[in-house]
Each structure stands twice: as structure tokens, then as C-alpha cells.
Design a protein around this nucleic acid. Structure first.
Lengths: 345, 345
DNA sequence: ATTAGCACTCAACGCGAGTGAGTGCTAATG
DNA sequence: CATTAGCACTCACTCGCGTTGAGTGCTAAT
């Protein structure tokens, strides 16, 4: 929109953003000429800074303080100036050290991934597990627990397992259950759970004529088994990392953030928005949907195995976040988890 | 140890504790005579307060402030003065409204219980799910997932379900699995998981002679299935409630508490200690094991179904906690969850 | 034994001067 | 004409200081 920035302005903007990310304090003109070897006097830098402020990239908390980047400033920085570093070897190693994940359940893995994200990035880690509804059906099994109580197990194409106890009116024999299982495992694979639901609804509506007793029972059972939506699972790790940030020292801002991090629902909404687009997504400050996370930036990436189970993970921190470090962490972790999902199946 | 308090001293101590719980500010002699209709002058109250301070029940932050209860003061209050109120109807209703729990998995139920605890008490809720290792074995099932991969399902006597994917070396046929299942379900019920583990170890050690091939395979499979300890599940709800407390306004104390609430391990240790004793337990301030939760009190109660799965739940908050309100909440919730467990089986 | 009276203590609040980092403007400079 | 040196100005922040008032402890009177 505005005239593009010339190189010197870019350099100065970059310097300010990076210094501010580092120190969390307003950056003055003199500080810049000192820390960076521009061959410029403070006065010149001041002129440039005044221009940048007018264009909306910088702001000053008050007349006699230095400048801090605005959201727009961060955006420009991330989009045009930032060069993403490679993920340092050590992090790569500690992430890839898959012994951590050996023999763990899906949940434990998600939890552990969150911990790693948080531990390495020093911010708060978020992981939204693959949505059950959009996973692809592979297998269903029934286990008799006791009189009239059945355990239903769904296995998705990517190896996710979901189970549920139901109480059908009838007490099926082992043999009946086997037949039902066989029938369903022949009919349903390849569809997503949502599609399976629809299919069942259709079958049950126009049942009467075509279906035999067994088939009817099969659909009724699986209908029961799929009733009730599965709550999204969101894992949050390292919430106290938020409190470490000098950006959120005020009691108010702390509370606001902690409340948001507690509300699974709000987190789902946040993470959902990045689900569709592939690759790393960056939401800076107010740009991120709601004002729920005022003063925060969110870096997310979807992950998926080859067979489609899709989840999202990310890191949330203050707008003054070390983007160049966090972006590769999120990126790499997402692909790592993808590989992990494939391994499982 | 000391001479018992006379009635007047008790009344005044009670008044101070309750007022302080209410206001979170040091209580002065005049304030007491005003708020409570003792027929005493401030001067007399002062004398009593001086005595109470000498005995260690009260302390003054500085000379010219009022008094606040010490940990010892709270303890005396809880043990001798407090009369536990009945749980108000409204809370009882909202807890018993079991539609909340209908058709939910164990985890979701635990999560929901935590939310209720926190929501009603206005403090932070903790729930430690029944320890898998001490649950009683009822049933095992195997489901073939794909070449060489098996899903193992344990069902405990109280209806808890635990599953795990294993990869035995051999690819068992459906028929073989059925035999193995039958054999194990005949051999193992009634023992705790820990006992089952020991039994398997013994059997495998002195195998050679007595066991036929099937039996040997059965034990090897279940050995694999039980390898690796199951991590304790702890659910924390309403952490931000901690930040609401005026007791923890300092940045330091906030961080300390949030860190502790994040560390499942530390929470397990806390909750574990109350596991053994039955009924509501109250840990006040430094009395609670470690200084991990400085300035906090913990009220816990174990819960268990008739068939033995045992967990612990509780509420954690500042020492300046509304004991008379929280104690019945924790008590009632524990028994409620116990009933819930029975219903499941 | 209780209470009124009084001197004393001390955190909290408000105020004003001093400090210094940083700015914007203007005039000099290569 | 862009850059720079110089300078007056702004304003958050800190520190010291007197004031205030809630609350105490002690003593003497009831």
C-alpha cells in the first residue's frame, strides 16, 4: 500500500524489532547506532524512525521513550525481513529422540509433543489432536463387558483408537457380534467418521425393505456407538512460560491469558482457523481472530500422516516473540508428528 | 500442648480467622468488636490477641497492623472451631445433575469433575484418576489391527478401560487369539494389575516344564501388554482461580504456584499422601509435605467404587481458604464420584 | 478483670526536586 | 541535498520527606 521501504529503513526497522524482541524495552536512536554497525549518526536514525512511525510501523509509548514495533511493524518484519534460521542440531536431536514416544498412547504422545514445543521454544505449546470425526474409518470391534454392556472400538486408517461403552437394549451373543463386526468392517472402511454417520442415518431411515435383521442390528449398534460428539482434545504445555514474559507483568493481562489458555473451547477456535491452510501460519497480535489473546502471537502448523488424520500444533507467546527461532521449531515438529502418525498405523 | 483456650479466646480466634478469610486483610481489635457482638472493649480484645500471638496462633505483619492467623491458628480453627456446614442445595443439585456425565469416557468425567470442583469452590480443582496398577483385573481382549499389530484391552473390575498397541513377534490367527483370551480370562480375574504382573513373571521364569505352547504364548503376550508403567493421570481445573487470590499477587508466588500446578509429578506426590487415609484430609500451609506449595492449603478426599478402583480428588487454594465451604464440597464430590464408578461397571 | 486514655510505631500516600534517556528542530557541513 | 552536530525540551522514574491514620502496648482508673 505505502511506498516500499528503502533498504536503510528496512535495516533499521529490522534492528529495532530484533533488539526489542531481545530486550523488551523501547529502543532509542542511540542504542541502535551502538549495537549495530550502521555508519549513521543517531540523528539520521531518528529521522528514519520518525518516518517509520508515521507509516505505522513503530510507536512510542511516550515522547521521551524509544520506539517499539507496532503489530504492523512485526508483520512487515516477519513477511519481508525475517530470514528463518535452520533448526539448531541440538533441538533437532532432542525432538527426534523418538525413544520419548516409544510405546506411548496417542494422548501421551500429544502431551509430550506439547512439552517439547514449550521446552524448546520457551513459550507455551499447544497441540490439538487429530479430529476424530474427520479420521478415516478402518475397523470396528465389539467386546462384551457384562450383561448388556458393550465396549466399542474404532480404529482409524492412521491408527488412532477411540473407544466407548454402550448399552444396547439387546444382549448379543459372541457369534452375533462377530457377524455384525464382519459386516460393518466390510461396509464402512474408507469413509470418514462423519460420512459413516450419514450413511448410517440413511440406512436406518429406509431400512425396512432391504436390510435383513443382522444388517439392521449392525447399523443400530454403530449408530449408538457414534452418538454424541467426541470432544476435541487440546493439550497445553508450559502455561507458566507466559507469566515469565515481561510483556505480561500486569495482573490483568496475566489473568486474561491464563483464562484463555484454560478454555479448551477458545483454543480450539484459535487452532481451527489454521487447520485448513497447509504449512506454518503466523498470527500477529490483534490480527489473530479475536481479541481473546490480546498482545499475543500464535504460530501454528497442521500435521497429518499420509493417511489423513489431521491435527494442529503451535506455539503461543507475546507479540514480542522470537519468530526466527520459533517458526522452524513449529515447522519441524509438525512434520515430525506427521511421521509419527504414519509409524503408528 | 499449651493450656487449652478458654471460650472467649476461642471466640475471638474464630472471629479473626473468619474475618481474615473474608477480607484478606489484617484484623484489628476495633474491627472485631464492631463486626461481632462480643460485649468487650477493643482494649480487652487486644489483651486476648496478645495472648493468642504469644501462643503462636496469630502473627502481626508489623507493629501497627492488625493480626493474621498463623498456620497453627488455621489448624486450631479447622480442628476445633469450625463447624462444617451442609452443602447448599444448589451445589448438591449441580453436582448430582448426572446428565453431565452421561456417556462420557473416564477421562472426560474426571475433567468434568475437576471443573465442577473448581467452579463451585472458586478455587483450583484437582482430580487424580484411579491408579491403573491397583485396579482389579476382570477381562482382557485382543484385537488384530494389521499384520503383527495387536490392540490389547484391559477392563478392570470397576469398569475402567485401558488399551495399548503392541507388536508381538508372531502373527497370531484369530482363533489362536481367542484361545489365549479365554485362557487368560480364566486365569487372571480377581488380582490387581500389579499382582498380575508378578504372576506373569513367575510363570515365565519357571515355564519350560508345565506350560503348553498356548499358555506360554498367552503369558508372553500379556507380559508385553503390561510392560511400561501407566502414567498417572492428574486433571487440574481452574488454575486461573489461583491468580484471582489476593494472597498471590506477587509475581514470584504466582510463578511458583503455576509451575507446581503444571508439574503432574509434584501433584501426584501431593495427592498420593492422602490416598491411604480415608475421608477428607486437610493440609494447611507448610504442614503439607513440601514447601512446594508455600502459602497453600490442600483439601483432599479419596474416592472409590465398591469394587476398589481408588483415586483422589481435592481442592487447592490459599491457606486463607474458606474451609467451611470447601470441606463439604470435597467430601460430597468424592462420594459422588464413587457412586459414578459403581454405575459404570 | 475490664476499660479509658495516651504515647508510640510504621506502612501507605502524596508531593516535589532531581535525573537521564530520548526526542524534535535547526543550523552547519561535505 | 542528505547527513550530522548541537541544543532545548519532554516526561517517566526515583528518591527523600513530611503527613496521615490504623493499630498497638502500657498504665492508671473503674
Amino acid at each position: 500500500m505505502d511506498a516500499p521501504l528503502n533498504e536503510r529503513s528496512q535495516n533499521i526497522l529490522e534492528a529495532i524489532v530484533e533488539d526489542y524482541i531481545h530486550t523488551a524495552e523501547p529502543i532509542g536512536s542511540r542504542a541502535i547506532t551502538k549495537r549495530h554497525a550502521f555508519d549513521l549518526s543517531p540523528a539520521t536514525v531518528r529521522n528514519v524512525m520518525a518516518d517509520l512511525e508515521e507509516m505505522g510501523f513503530l510507536a512510542s509509548p511516550h515522547t521521551s521513550a524509544g520506539r517499539i514495533p507496532t503489530d504492523k511493524g512485526y508483520q512487515y518484519y516477519v513477511e519481508s525481513l525475517l530470514q528463518v534460521r535452520d533448526l539448531p542440531e541440538e533441538f533437532r536431536h532432542s525432538l527426534e529422540d523418538s525413544s520419548r514416544f516409544a510405546g506411548k498412547s496417542m494422548e501421551e504422545v500429544m502431551q509430550e509433543v506439547g512439552n517439547l514445543l514449550s521446552g524448546i521454544s520457551k513459550y507455551t505449546g499447544l497441540v490439538m489432536a487429530p479430529r476424530f470425526n474427520s479420521t478415516i474409518f478402518r475397523q470396528i470391534e465389539f467386546v462384551r463387558l457384562s450383561q448388556g454392556r458393550l465396549l466399542v472400538i474404532f480404529v482409524s486408517e492412521s491408527g488412532l483408537i477411540q473407544n466407548k461403552v454402550i448399552e444396547p437394549g439387546i444382549d448379543f451373543s459372541q457369534r452375533e457380534l462377530e457377524s455384525i463386526t464382519n459386516y460393518l468392517n466390510h461396509q464402512l472402511p474408507g469413509m470418514t467418521i462423519t460420512q459413516v454417520r450419514e450413511r448410517i442415518a440413511v440406512e436406518l431411515r429406509e431400512e425396512k425393505t432391504r436390510l435383513n435383521k443382522l444388517q439392521k442390528q449392525a447399523f443400530e449398534l454403530s449408530d449408538k456407538a457414534l452418538q454424541g460428539d467426541v470432544a476435541e482434545q487440546v493439550y497445553v504445555a508450559g502455561t507458566s512460560r507466559m507469566l515469565e514474559q515481561p510483556d505480561f507483568t500486569s495482573h490483568d493481562s496475566m489473568m486474561k491469558i491464563m483464562r484463555t489458555l484454560e478454555s479448551k473451547q477458545q483454543l480450539i477456535e484459535l487452532l481451527d482457523s489454521s487447520q485448513s491452510a497447509g504449512g506454518v501460519q503466523i498470527f500477529i497480535g490483534s490480527q489473530s481472530s479475536d481479541a481473546k489473546i490480546e498482545g499475543c502471537s500464535l504460530i501454528t502448523a497442521p500435521f497429518s500422516g499420509q493417511k489423513g488424520a489431521v491435527g494442529t500444533l503451535g506455539v503461543i507467546g507475546p507479540v514480542r516473540m522470537n519468530y526466527s527461532q520459533v517458526i522452524p521449531i513449529v515447522d519441524f515438529t509438525a512434520s515430525l508428528v506427521g511421521r509419527l502418525l504414519d509409524r503408528e498405523s
